[in-house]
Amino acid sequence: MTGLRPAPARVVLRGRTVVPGVVTGEVLVSPETISGWGGIDPATGTITEARHPLAGVCFTGRILVFPGAKGSSGWSGFFQTTRLLGTAPIGMVFAVTTTKVALGAVVTRVPALADLDDDPVAVLRTGDRIRLDATAGVVELLARTEEEP
C-alpha cells in the first residue's frame, strides 16, 4: 500500500451512467484495453495476458479504470464469474463503450461510468482513492497516491 496525500486540486470527471451506484475505493489503472476470455483469471481476479502491462496484477476490491474491452465475446461471462467467485472489482470507469464492456459491467453488478469529459486513464493513477458516483455520473479524486506515475 502506497502513501496518499490530499488531492492537489479538485479533480472531478463527469460521464454517462452505465451501471448506477456509489462506491469509494482505490484505483487500478490499466493503460491498455483488457481481454476477458484469455486475459483474466476469474478464480484469482488477476490479469493473465502475457503481453499486458498489468500481467499478474489483481483487480479484486479495486476500481478498475481502463480504456475498454478487447477480444472475445466471452468478456462479460468472465467478469460475471469474478462476481460469482468473489474476486470482482468494486467499480469500473472506462473510456470507450462497446457491447462487451457494457454487458460485462451489468453482470459484474458494480457501479460503472463511461464516456467521460476527460480521459480517465490519463487523469487517474493506480493507488489514487476516488469516490465513484455512477448514479450522478461523477468521479471525484479524494486522495492522490504518493507514488510517481
Partner: peptide, 8 residues
C-alpha cells in the same frame, strides 16, 4: 448483430 455475451 452486435458482439453479444452469454447473458444477453
Amino acid at each position: 448483430t452486435n458482439c453479444e455475451g452469454g447473458a444477453s
